[in-house]
Amino acid sequence: MSASIVVQDVVRHYRRPRASLLRPSPPVEAVKGVSFEVARGERFGLVGESGSGKSTLLRLIGALDRPTSGQIFVEGMDITGRRERDLGFVRSQLQVVFQDPMGSLDPRMRVRDIIAEPLVAQAGEGSTRDAREARVLELLEAVGLPREAADRFPHQFSGGQRQRISIARALAPRPTILLADEPVSALDVSVRAQVLNLITEFVEELGLTLLFVSHDLSVVRHTCDRVAVMRAGEVVELGPTAQVYDDPQHPYTQQLLRAAPSMRRALRGGGTAELVGGGS
């Protein structure tokens, strides 16, 4: 079985605006030579703090940004260096759920048009208005929203409901790969579990490949089979989730795991000193 996503020596530099007239600013190295593969049907987590390059990497894999060097293959196709109009294959195979449930939905569009957007954008022969409408209603039901939701605007929904709309949009073109960029970090605790369950259910039932980006270790631990820990543009540790969490090898992974507050440790009497590694 071939890999769903292959990332090979991917580098992404950004140019910073000039601070001096005389010499150009040094480039920001957001991603510095990252390689990994995600197998078909695998749930792969990318964990890191802000500035680790995890979101940049997600955008590169989603063909929303171009790498400075290196190659990315999606379902066997090289997506690097292609023009927007030649990316139709990626757009139909791979969809993205973004972090901000308000910002990722156009406030001026009705939910119906939001969910149908990938269908309209990728309209081939056989895509009729009726077929799209049927698909929209089917998706609304699948994500647990009433039919009336189709006529509403995004601002009429709560954060969790908006994220369901995002998920429905992502599933509309029947992709094989789902990229999720911090999909639950802006949600209330009581709603987070619902949305996480929804994502894992779909991934399982539709046999999707999942690339899940998060700063929250416990969420990735629950959701993913394998995990890559990123720091400053590099993958510092990669392995099966259970192994990385139970027996972290890299000092940064150890630090990250220790720093995350845990209910268990707290109830065992672990205070804040334990988070920063004091007392040991």
């Binding site: 990316l87 757009r91 139909s92 993205v96 901000d100 910002g103 990722s104 954008a121 990728q122």
Partner: peptide, 16 residues
Amino acid sequence: TEYVLAARAAGRRSWG
């Protein structure tokens, strides 16, 4: 905005 990014991910071209 993220919704423009989402539209690109959905396959919308520039004019769309």
